[in-house]
Design a protein around this nucleic acid. Structure first.
Length: 203
DNA sequence: CCCATTGGGATTTTAT
DNA sequence: AATAAAATCCCAATGG
């Protein structure tokens, strides 16, 4: 049953890669993020950035270092390798361009990708009617973590517990906050806008 | 009590 | 090579 999980992960990474690639050539799927952004909080106390004091907001290098889109042809990832290989779909230094699938990506960026990927909906998904709020699936949360660990090329497997620690760190820098509900977090407005902007390739 | 989730100190890894 | 920032590891606390 584990081999299933692994091949599943591989498949999803590949799907994600292709999706990202597709996205770049088809930017006309406009209102997909904006509709979420437009529909403001209807939930209980999710007025985050509307009523809280910005802690230490230091908006500077967020993701200004990511290599610009220079894609073109390396879609031919050898997807025959087994998941046992530490790096099957470019995990570390290989030529990574589409912020989507490689290189130095920050955790919150990775999570945004997952959130934008319909195939990941069973692991993480946006909370409707609240901008930037997302929630992990109680049963599949560790799958996202595992994917994150693979993306980073970690030797030891990543777990939700460890990944969530990194999420908690984001509260200090004001990039992501924890919301009261279980397994749910929220991107700061600033972070969300940057991610959305980057997604359209306006960078 | 058990198990899942959350918090945070300490340490390691990666970037500048 | 040195420092800072980000991420990881690990264990304690909390909640259902």
């Amino acid at each position: 049953m584990n081999s299933y999980q692994e091949s599943q992960s591989d498949l999803e990474v590949i799907l994600e890669f292709l999706e990202e690639y597709y996205r770049q050539n088809a930017t006309e799927k406009g209102a997909s993020v904006d509709e979420r952004f437009a529909s403001l909080e209807a939930e209980s106390c999710e007025h985050r950035w509307m009523c809280y004091e910005p802690p230490i907001i230091k908006h500077e290098p967020l993701l200004a270092h990511i290599t610009p889109p220079a894609l073109g042809h390396n879609t031919a990832v050898t997807l025959s390798e087994r998941g046992s290989l530490p790096n099957f779909v470019s995990t570390t230094q290989p030529t990574k361009h589409t912020a989507g699938s490689g290189g130095k990506v920050r955790l919150f960026h990775f999570l945004f990708e997952m959130l934008e990927d319909p195939n990941m909906a069973h692991c993480v998904s946006w909370v409707p009617a609240s901008a930037g709020v997302f929630r992990f699936s109680s049963t599949n949360k560790d799958q996202v973590a595992a994917l994150w660990g693979q993306r980073k090329g970690n030797k030891r497997p990543m777990t939700y517990q460890k990944m969530s620690r990194a999420l908690r760190n984001y509260a200090r820098s004001g990039e992501i906050f924890k919301v009261k509900k279980k397994l749910t977090y929220q991107f700061s407005q600033e972070t969300l806008m940057i991610l959305q902007k980057y997604q359209r390739g306006d960078l």
